[in-house]
């Protein structure tokens, strides 16, 4: 004889069974499903949500969603739901713009860290007689996507940072200088501000290389770069232009101020430094200074003037700063 339970199941018939299975499926599916009516009263609360909130359907169904969960972004959620009721249209939210609707711990308590679960939500209008009677919010766990996206973003940011830096010295490279130079020129012109450029290089660099070897030459380049970064302001921009040659851009600085900064740099660079655990060594630098004038054609012209002044420093005996005079 069949049990009363089997009788009850059999009595449902195939169509009834399908409805019964559907209800179980909705309850057990591995996404959150909460259904609310137009007043915000909860009509459905599945097991996924039960498990994450530790609130059973009995504790939630029949209650107002916002009263039960005061931490929800009410104004936003009401607007979103209202539009679904009116438009009879699916609506979506992504973790990219709104990290989560309900704050849940992520599903990996041991490896996931303290980050809350990232969620994508789909708002589904449930119509009856041509009218939306309720809206189901389907909440999916997007934490995995979030994490791989975050790692990707970090890798891209690191690569971007590397691609604008000089590998030996860590100061900016020439490509970045050319981008910044254009932007700084435009900015200075737009806001009617000063902009100066200092071009400097190591005196008799070939002799350093020939005497001490290229590794020591590299140390000399690093020494000068690090002095420049230390002496100049954080808003100044230092780039290795090529070989032993550097460019510094000094936004907001007039030519006299830039010349003073270059002079401080010249003095600092001349201090002895220790290369590769050998005896202390010293090098000198020559510098040329130019400043933006109303008739300066472009960034290239600004650098060309600093370069001419640098050449004048070399011609006058090196280890000095020369101001470009038009």
């Amino acid at each position: 004889m069949a049990s009363p339970q089997a009788d009850a199941t059999a009595a449902l018939g195939p169509a009834g069974l399908a409805v019964d299975f559907l209800a179980r499926l909705i309850d057990r599916i591995n996404v959150g499903i909460v259904t609310v009516d137009a007043d915000g009263t909860v009509m459905q609360w599945n097991r996924f949500l039960h498990a994450h909130t530790c609130l059973s359907p009995e504790q939630v169904i029949g209650q107002n969603l916002y009263d039960r969960f005061p931490e929800l972004p009410r104004a936003w959620l009401e607007r979103k739901l209202r539009s679904v009721f009116l438009l009879k249209n699916f609506a979506f939210t992504s973790w990219r713009q709104r990290p989560y609707l309900f704050r849940f711990d992520n599903h990996r308590p041991l490896t996931g860290g303290a980050e809350p679960m990232r969620q994508d939500c789909t708002f589904i209008p449930l119509e009856q007689d041509g009218e939306v009677k309720a809206v189901s919010i389907v909440i999916t766990d997007a934490t995995d996507t979030y994490e791989s996206q975050t790692r990707l973003d970090e890798a891209v940011a690191a690569l971007a940072a590397q691609s604008e830096r000089d590998a030996l010295t860590g100061v900016y490279n020439r490509r970045k200088l050319e981008q910044v130079l254009d932007a700084e020129m435009k900015r200075a012109r737009r806001y009617n501000q000063s902009l100066s450029a200092v071009m400097f290089d190591i005196d008799h660099f070939k002799r350093v290389n020939d005497t001490h070897g290229h590794l020591v030459g590299d140390e000399a380049i690093k020494h000068v770069a690090s002095r420049a970064v230390a002496i100049l302001r954080v808003t100044d921009f230092v780039a290795r232009y090529g070989g032993e040659e550097f460019v510094a851009l000094l936004p907001g600085e007039q030519i006299a101020g830039a010349a003073k900064a270059a002079e401080r740099l010249r003095e600092a660079a001349a201090k002895p430094f220790t290369a590769l655990s050998e005896v202390p060594l010293s090098v000198t630098i020559s510098a040329g200074v130019s400043a933006l004038r109303p008739d300066t054609a472009d960034g290239k012209a600004l650098l060309a003037e600093a370069d001419k002044a640098l050449y004048a420093s070399k011609a006058a005996g090196r280890n000095r700063v020369t101001i470009f005079t038009p």
Partner: peptide, 10 residues
């Protein structure tokens, strides 16, 4: 961005 997503969706 969220607003644009909503409007575009509609």
């Amino acid at each position: 961005q969220e607003v644009l997503l909503d409007v575009a969706n509609v």
